[in-house]
Design a protein around this nucleic acid. Sequence first.
DNA 1: CGTCAGCTTGAAGGTGCTCAATAACCGTGG
DNA 2: CCACGGTTATTGAGCACCTTCAAGCTGACG
Lengths: 240, 240
Amino acid sequence: MDTRKDIHNSEVPLLCRACEARHRGVCGALRPEQLIELSKHSTRKRVGSASELYGESRQGSTYSNIIAGVVKLTKMMADGRQQIVGLQFAPDFLGRPFRAESNLTAEAATEVSVCSFPKSVIDRMIGETPELEHRLLQQTLKELDEARDWMLTLGRKTASEKVASFLLLIATHVDPESELDSAEFELPLTRSDIADFLGLTIETVSRQLTRLRKDGVIVINNNRCVIVPNLDMLAQRAAI
Amino acid sequence: MDTRKDIHNSEVPLLCRACEARHRGVCGALRPEQLIELSKHSTRKRVGSASELYGESRQGSTYSNIIAGVVKLTKMMADGRQQIVGLQFAPDFLGRPFRAESNLTAEAATEVSVCSFPKSVIDRMIGETPELEHRLLQQTLKELDEARDWMLTLGRKTASEKVASFLLLIATHVDPESELDSAEFELPLTRSDIADFLGLTIETVSRQLTRLRKDGVIVINNNRCVIVPNLDMLAQRAAI
DNA sequence: CGTCAGCTTGAAGGTGCTCAATAACCGTGG
DNA sequence: CCACGGTTATTGAGCACCTTCAAGCTGACG
């Protein structure tokens, strides 16, 4: 744990003091007075899983920071087929700048805490603070890299490689770089979500998980809690 | 054709006068003196198809603007399987800011003209000119939208829908919004490239193309020239 | 204890892949 | 002009992987 120095700590809004978004997220670009201004219009809320954060119904007039939990970004076809095109974790920024939300739904995959603010306020601050736009660019580039990594998975990997890749992705995102060789975590997605993320059916996901379990690559408790004794072994299954 | 006014036209480098990148691309963010500075270090070149623009071998120390042609962004697995994760057209910006090129290869799909400049010069200008970073963010967001659209195609569409989606993508990018109901264009990709873009094999691509041809949705001449008499019919095949 | 959602397991079928042969295109050169 | 190799594309047959359909299982909760 590094101790972060805040020269004028008293000027930082109470709400923001311990917030990760101020350190690793976009709010780190803002000066204390901007944080105060922003916090006047911001609202924190805790929503249950399957809540829609923006999309069809809620035509997003707000941006959000994810404080805790996992958010899935979903695309849907007219006939109901759907694909998860991204997963977002704290302290990611949520919302599409400069446009009414593309054609994408953001939905809580788990219990999620967000800190939301009106688009208008942020859009104004973007104009005033180049550093803010810089952080947005950094995050967007990161998301683009992740999207392209996943395109390789979707287009060219087998079902079993896909499932292993998914477990590896979750392991590296929820377990904060803890041990290098093993991991233990709770799956933030249902089998149905995993299928929509991997471009598979739930049956295939289930079968591949069972196979990994029988082969001793993973241990599963209560359908959700996963233990990976050897991450290298999993990485091999993921064809990485 | 709109006539664009350049107040100090004489100050704009000769090379940049008629360049689309100055209007629709990132160079539009630069002031005349910056264009002059940049043009001192920039080189135009024309490269044949299959030339590597950056990637494994050429560890990119330059950024480029695409002046003409189509560039494919490719990811490759250790065992040789590969996936095209993006196509870029003029006047797109080429290169990954703030990082040594992810793990991605940019290759000319057709004959390509580029205007290249050292990363150092652009990186400095990014610090000086917020508008430049704004344009980069805009392009990155566009690429992210496209990547996510394509993830839906890769994960959830059938082979025949994939091929139709691909044709529709090319039709809308090379034919400059000409007619709304029909299109005619030359395919910038080989069957093998199309397969790598769609996550299919060349045989499947070929079969689906002949099926579209036999069904009267498209006409193909010389294996490369495609005519789409009715774009709506093609869109239907693409399940859009 | 019954119900319901989420998950697993099984059997059958289809879509897209593999392997293999044929066909078209294109430059070169006789 | 045609012959000729090399590359690129098409077509066919058989098979594998993943899906579909259907049933059974597990755990939470009334």
